[in-house]
């Protein structure tokens, strides 16, 4: 047998062996990793419906969506006005109030999870400390949110997250 051809074939063979071994191991890792993602039943539970019919202006309720609190606030017209007139310049995460709700400015729907390190801010109950801007106040590290859910003061980097939702006939569907 020709020595050179022999060597070439061996190298090709061994390279194929390595490749298949690596591909096999990578393929084996997929089920292990993907099994840690949300299971089908967990994903199926990812929709929450809330009836907004009884929510009076100025009131707030908390719903549960994907294991996290969702703040729903029925804002008064003064509050809406106040949120609109804020000077966006100088805000940590500048966003107009119009971008913070869908369809109806009366209902603000945000995740009740502080964007700093995940605590639940105060401000849903009438007796709560609502912070310096009349919205929410996170007791963990002192982040202040305004009535539009925007971060105004404190360590949190972002405005409160808006979950995917739609409101039809006073029925709020989150997720």
């Amino acid at each position: 047998m020709d020595g050179k051809a022999d060597k070439g074939r061996r190298d090709f063979l061994i390279l194929t062996g390595y490749t298949m071994g690596a591909a096999g191991l990578a393929g084996l890792a997929v089920p292990f990793i993907d099994s840690l993602n949300p299971a089908a039943d967990t994903q199926a539970l990812a929709t929450t419906e809330v009836n907004l019919g009884l929510l009076q202006p100025g009131q707030a309720i908390t719903a549960m969506w994907r294991g996290k609190p969702v703040f729903i606030r029925h804002r008064t017209s003064e509050e809406i006005e106040q949120a609109r007139t804020v000077e966006l310049k100088g805000l940590p995460d500048p966003e107009a109030d119009e971008a913070r709700f869908k369809d109806n400015p009366q209902f603000l729907v945000v995740l009740g999870v502080c964007t700093h390190l995940g605590c639940v801010p105060l401000g849903q109950k009438p007796t709560d400390n609502k912070g310096d801007f009349g919205g929410w106040f996170c007791p963990c590290h002192g982040s202040h949110y305004d009535i539009s859910g925007r971060i105004r003061k404190g360590p949190a980097p972002k405005n409160l997250t808006i979950p995917p939702y739609e409101i039809k006939d006073k029925l709020l569907k989150i997720g």
Partner: peptide, 13 residues
């Protein structure tokens, strides 16, 4: 059974 039906690749594991 949840592993078998709902967990991603649960049946395989």
């Amino acid at each position: 059974e949840r592993i078998m039906r709902d967990v991603n690749y649960g049946w395989l594991l």
